[in-house]
């Protein structure tokens, strides 16, 4: 097998007395959808924050596409192909949907030290931004301010922003959080359509989604990976059942 796209090894992150990551090992192959499940407070968001660069681990290494990125700042990681979505919607509130997407496009295109040309009428921003919105079904809502979008639409825009970066690895932190069944079904179909084309680290509580999308599943409990493998193996694992699936199912 080719070298993994992402390798997390021995990552430790402490907040005061709590070890939110307690020696996490994880690897994601190119094109793989790797789900990370676990109870609330297990350290899933903390793991994503360390892979995206928002948090620095206290110990351990993170290697992305052959390069050690452990000490790289978050913006540079985003530009090198690591894109994340947030568990709690994190958009630019005073911008419209397309302005949010256009900001992602201009960031992907390089630096933003262009002072003269008007961004609003710039087709090299607006066309790819519109395409990113269309991928999540928001093309009809392009000029709506973020604050006026429905919750499900805001969640979709979160994904559109990550996709607009054309990442090689998508870090998805509970993309279905707070969604109704129809929005959730749409999101699953969207992610299913991305499968194989872009690698994903998917944190999700919706077990239907996880078992449908994941190629591999890792189970995180108290900052430790207690099981990792193919979905059917993880489902059968007794320890996992006790630690997590038992109480969720």
């Amino acid at each position: 097998m080719a070298e993994a796209l992402l390798t997390v090894s021995g990552v430790i992150k402490r907040f005061g007395g709590i070890a939110a990551s307690d020696g996490v090992d994880l690897s994601i192959a190119r094109g793989e959808c790797h789900a990370v499940i676990g109870p609330n407070g297990a350290g899933k968001t903390t793991l994503i924050a360390q892979v995206s660069g928002e948090l620095r681990p206290d110990a351990g290494r993170i290697v992305f596409d052959g390069a050690d990125v452990t000490h790289e700042p978050a913006p540079r990681r985003a530009r090198s192909g690591l894109a994340r979505s947030f568990q709690v919607t994190c958009l630019i509130p005073s911008f419209t949907a397309i302005e949010n997407a256009a900001l992602a496009i201009q960031a992907r295109q390089g630096h933003s030290f262009r002072f003269w040309r008007e961004a609003r009428g710039d087709r090299s921003l607006n066309e790819p931004a519109m395409a990113a919105l269309a991928r999540v079904g928001l093309e009809g809502r392009a000029n709506v301010p973020v604050g006026a979008l429905a919750h499900g639409e805001q969640r979709a825009l979160e994904i559109a922003l990550a996709l607009a970066l054309e990442p090689r690895l998508l870090l998805l932190d509970e993309p279905m959080a707070g969604m109704g069944p129809s929005d959730a079904a749409r999101m699953i179909a969207l992610l299913d359509g991305l499968k194989g084309r872009v690698a994903m680290l998917l944190v999700e509580h919706d077990m239907d989604a996880v078992f449908r999308l994941a190629d591999r599943i890792s189970v995180l409990v108290y900052g430790k990976v207690i099981a990792s493998g193919r979905p059917e193996d993880v489902r059968a694992d007794a320890e996992v059942k006790r630690a997590y699936l038992g109480e969720a199912a």
Partner: peptide, 15 residues
């Protein structure tokens, strides 16, 4: 402006 309104988001986009 993006970084003013939501620095976290701007950083996640690579800014």
């Amino acid at each position: 402006e993006g970084a003013k309104w939501n620095e976290r988001r701007a950083v996640a986009l690579g800014i």
